[in-house]
Design a protein around this nucleic acid. Sequence first.
DNA 1: TACAATTTGTCCGTATGTATC
DNA 2: TGATACATACGGACAAATTGT
Lengths: 264, 264
Amino acid sequence: MDKVLPVVTLRGAVDDDSQPPEPTARLRVQRVRPAYAQVADELRAQILGGALPAGERLPNEAELGTAFGVSRSTVREALRVLASQHLIETTRGVRGGSFVAAPDPARVVEDVGSALGVLVMTPQLGIHDLLEARLLLEPTAARLAAQRADAETVAAIRAAAVAPRDERDPSGFVGRIDFHTTILMATGNLMITMMGQPVNDVLRTRLRRDGVERGEWDKVDACHRDIAERVAAGDPAAAEEAMREHIVTLRGLYERDGLWTDEP
Amino acid sequence: MDKVLPVVTLRGAVDDDSQPPEPTARLRVQRVRPAYAQVADELRAQILGGALPAGERLPNEAELGTAFGVSRSTVREALRVLASQHLIETTRGVRGGSFVAAPDPARVVEDVGSALGVLVMTPQLGIHDLLEARLLLEPTAARLAAQRADAETVAAIRAAAVAPRDERDPSGFVGRIDFHTTILMATGNLMITMMGQPVNDVLRTRLRRDGVERGEWDKVDACHRDIAERVAAGDPAAAEEAMREHIVTLRGLYERDGLWTDEP
DNA sequence: TACAATTTGTCCGTATGTATC
DNA sequence: TGATACATACGGACAAATTGT
């Protein structure tokens, strides 16, 4: 309870856009920053600034309230904000409380994906953009994978290439997209994985799985196995080219209409 | 107040991981989903599902409470979660309330950037990964820009190539672009822009700009002008190659240590 | 200018659920 | 089997902000 210092707990502080010489500003200028937001800001700054290291336990809600000079309800609203940004985790019971969360790549990928997800229904982002991005990213990813994959990773890629069909995914649709995710992860570059994953997520949720003959999916599976083998062989150029051709083929499949739906 | 339908407002519902045959699970399984989270989930589903279109005004907090069978405090915590994810915006006063937020590319890029920000302090994501991702993305972006940029875009690129660095321009999406962002946007592909922008954001905030002789920055500016001219000339291959060389050079500059700081 | 209406913001008090010892 | 220490949830009250009259 030492580190949480409410430096300036000014009630009703304005967030200082300093617009006295601007009487024309009409568009909803947030004049006062609510207390819960100020508390959240302060805690976030302390977390990101390293004052509160990962795993650190925060004071309980009542103590935070007195420390910041606000009520418990206000503290709770601030904590909800931080929790939804995965900066803290809170558990109940004695030994419970709010703890600074450790950065988790998987969660960040999720966050990025869901952040991008809200854009995908806008007319500003169409399937053509997604497929172009995929064509930009994944062939090179395949190249890097071929350069770097160790035995374990190769095994994972081979496994993903056979498109596991479970009861919830009889056509293997989701499994096929997972192959692409596996390739991305095989680059060993978390940034590249995170850039590519949202595209696959969106395709997974927005693409209709029916209306395609089984023969087409068989061809896709063959492509995947081919790519997997080229990666396993450690042949970067071949892997890249195979992935490129595969994606171009997929693009034709997707855009030969009917597969893309504007309704989720 | 019609569209907000609390389909199954079960209090104390378990989120069904169905792990009765697993008594060994020790690692904090979230057994019950708190009411505020359930409310947030339901509202989020309605927003993302399109049942609540952008701009729509939600019922006030009291009404939401009775609709979901929870108290107003609980509703408020749910609303804070949604607001922190930029799914709603809340204002006070008559005519105020909570409104479904319109998807905003600039905000999404911000979110992605801040989500990534928590990762760059971990050993799992180093500057090498960022620069590799940049090297993957931006040369091709330059190629696409050279293929597609119209006169106006070319002018913007030229302007960005000579724009002064280190200038804070907090207004808007276009306002705080640097040269690399301009190139990304010139692809005309929002997905590519959003994939590349976080990298630039992170580099901008985490890179020390001092400790480099002015001559080095002059060379960078020269590179930018060179790339801009190749894009303007509509020479995709030349633009791509220039950008690639430029980034490789930058990588050397960054990694010749001292430029990367682990303190924000 | 003043006042009323509406809605979020904030507080308090209390009770309950949950995990640990 | 309690006892403890947390978060979770409720309901009511009032304050503050914004808009309209």
